[in-house]
Design a protein around this nucleic acid. Sequence first.
DNA 1: TAGGGCATGTACCAATTGGTACACTCGCGA
DNA 2: TCGCGAGTGTACCAATTGGTACATGCCCTA
Lengths: 202, 202
Amino acid sequence: MVNTDDSHPEGEAAPGTDGDRRSQLVNAAVDYVAAHGFADLSLRGLGAAIGVSHRMLIHYFGSKEQLLVEIVRTSEQRQRDLLSRLRLEPGLSPADAARLLWQQLTDPRLAGQERLFFEICGHALRGRPEAAPVLEGLVNDWLEPLMAAEVAAGADPAVARNRARLGLATVRGLLLDLLATGDRAGVDAAMEEFLRLYYGSK
Amino acid sequence: MVNTDDSHPEGEAAPGTDGDRRSQLVNAAVDYVAAHGFADLSLRGLGAAIGVSHRMLIHYFGSKEQLLVEIVRTSEQRQRDLLSRLRLEPGLSPADAARLLWQQLTDPRLAGQERLFFEICGHALRGRPEAAPVLEGLVNDWLEPLMAAEVAAGADPAVARNRARLGLATVRGLLLDLLATGDRAGVDAAMEEFLRLYYGSK
DNA sequence: TAGGGCATGTACCAATTGGTACACTCGCGA
DNA sequence: TCGCGAGTGTACCAATTGGTACATGCCCTA
């Protein structure tokens, strides 16, 4: 009764190889959303920006909802890639490693992506179904590697979890501060203060 | 040419006394928005929920935009009231004062308001004009009193600003964690860890 | 009691939105 | 060469939206 046309590819699109058009579109969509916002996205606006008709977006993703799901998922994936890509060379002190990570995280070129993160968080907290999945991994997915780092750095396993959770929260809080105020120096100083407390050095 | 009807009150509505209907409406609106979200608010939905026709909302606020501005402002005001209302009795150690503040801040009854805060942040970061004003006070308005508390507690004025900024960011980060995961115990433990580092006690 | 102004409701409008129907093109296998 | 199916565009639809026009009721004052 529906879909006399459009036998959507629906192909799971082997994540590595690009579902060709589909993956290309979702990547362009994430770029667009990172730049223009997630809340008031319209298929027509997006389509015009990335050079397809809104018809094609429906064709490839079935519905706006599904497209948003993929945008959120891809955005999360990018966030994760970000962490995994900065393979901090060993030999660095934990404090210096954290400093490096903070430095890369606050690269102005990532501002759009960070803003998108907070924007999606807001929608997820509100229960928007396409954004809700991020709540699952919002903390837990990051806690594991951070805990491992804590333990590796010699922290008591009993407190490593708390320390990891604290560090994650602080980074996010300061990131929000930075995005809101743009006061890089002030936020960096606060981060230095945190590192001093956290790693006890200085 | 416009407004043959509707000589909007526009009265500044002496904040204390309620602009009568207008203030009453905006308060109901904030409650509704705290419960149902800010992003996809429609005048009709809101009106139906609080018992007026969407026509009246336009009548009292001129436009949806202006209503949103007032909602944001009132929401901010509530946030501020929250802080000023908890006049922490003197004699408490700074750590205990902070603990008390955290306890009150994470009261489940405030969850809606907190969620609204993060939601509005997301929109403000994206440049939505009705939410943008919050960016101004997002950090600075809180820094002043926190710095004063730091100095009063004997902190070096040179680092008080950094410590205040750090504390604010950490609280917000952990609040986001709590809202996302609901893991009260875990977040509380992380906060305890922070207080230990921050105030050096224990 | 008459009248004027505020508050409110009903009906409506134009714009935008997600989604659909159908027509067209192009490349490839028989 | 024929035809078929995937990819794409154009035109359209129904729903929802913010906002407006107009009519009505209510209260207060003259």
